[in-house]
Amino acid sequence: MNALANPAVGDRVVHKSFPPISRHTLALYCGASGDHNPIHVDIDFARKAGFGDVFTHGMLVMGYLGQALTDAVHPSKVRSFSTRFAAITQLGAQLTCEGHVAELTEHQGERRARLTLTARDEAGEVKLAGEAVVAI
């Protein structure tokens, strides 16, 4: 939890890979989140909607990115965390989440780092982008 002991702009301070997203993962997430939209678990429904298969909940991907962040930076140090969805995350995607120091600042006497965050699939496509501000 000391990824930001002596940070410099450009440093990678967040890095975590996740196993491929399975149908089982999606079903478990439905139950845990209460998001039972059939586009995420029912292949027939997904095909009728014009997709080849079900796809991952965006908030599951956001959860992965948040977990990667708090694995690198203690949750008590996180001052803000925001994301935007960039692309649909397909079933089977293997996501890697990263965060780099974009800026070092001070706010009311507290040293902070602004991190740029991404969740990318195995082909390198950005699925989720965001940023966090953390105390250092």
Rank of each mutant, 00 (worst) to 15 (best):
T56A: 11
H57G: 02
G58D: 04
G58N: 05
G58C: 06
M59R: 02
M59L: 10
L60P: 07
L60F: 15
L60C: 06
L60Y: 13
V61R: 03
M62V: 14
M62W: 08
M62I: 09
M62R: 07
Y64E: 09
L65F: 04
G66I: 08
G66F: 06
Q67R: 10
Q67Y: 13
Q67H: 15
L69Y: 00
D71K: 05
D71E: 15
D71G: 05
D71Y: 12
D71A: 15
D71N: 14
V73Y: 03
P75A: 03
S76E: 14
S76N: 14
S76I: 14
K77R: 15
K77W: 09
K77V: 08
F81C: 10
S82L: 09
S82I: 00
T83V: 15
R84S: 13
R84T: 12
R84P: 08
F85K: 05
F85V: 07
A86H: 08
A87W: 04
A87M: 10
T89L: 00
Q90F: 06
Q90Y: 07
G92D: 02
Q94A: 14
Q94V: 07
Q94K: 14
L95T: 00
L95M: 04
C97P: 01
C97W: 01
C97D: 03
G99W: 00
V101R: 04
A102I: 01
A102P: 04
A102H: 07
E103I: 07
E103Y: 03
L104V: 11
L104F: 08
T105W: 00
E106S: 08
H107Y: 13
G109S: 10
R111F: 10
R111W: 03
